[in-house]
């Protein structure tokens, strides 16, 4: 657990340093994720410990969004003023994105299956 958590933090740190050093548009943790993915591919997979720790962390992923979500109270003023454009944009864009992505993926994987037969 401790070793695995250290690995995750080290990769995050390397990611943050690279992002700052080269002024990259990608945030540090994402670079850390890409580097860890590359390391896993080179090494042939994660240790059981790393797998368990990642699973535990990701199992409670929704908890990790709660503190930032409570930050909604800082923006009651702006949300009150702009509730209609914000709500329309979020609802419209979320529904559209789910529908478009699902329809494109279904159409393309059906075509790939048909081509394979």
């Amino acid at each position: 657990m401790l070793g695995a958590l250290t690995i995750l933090l080290v990769f995050q740190l390397i990611g943050e340093v690279l992002a700052q050093l080269f002024a990259l548009p990608v945030p540090g943790p994402v670079i850390g994720m890409a580097l860890l993915f590359a390391a896993l591919a080179l090494r042939g997979g994660p240790s059981a410990e790393l797998r368990d720790t990642a699973q535990n962390l990701l199992q409670h992923l929704s908890l990790l969004f709660v503190p930032a979500g409570v930050g909604v109270m800082l923006h009651f003023g702006r949300i009150g003023d702009e509730w209609l454009p914000l709500a329309a944009s979020l609802v419209g864009s979320t529904v559209l994105t789910i529908a478009v992505t699902a329809l494109v993926l279904r159409a393309l994987s059906r075509r790939a299956e048909t081509a394979g037969k």
Binding site: L5, L36, L58
Partner: peptide
């Protein structure tokens, strides 16, 4: 909110390592 976040930041902080941990299901 800032008073609340002083405590909640320990949960919030884990979003960073959790993002790195996504490499594992991805793999």
């Amino acid at each position: 909110y800032p008073t609340y976040f002083d405590g909640a930041q320990f949960v919030h902080f884990l979003l960073g390592p959790a993002t790195v941990a996504l490499a594992i299901p991805l793999y």
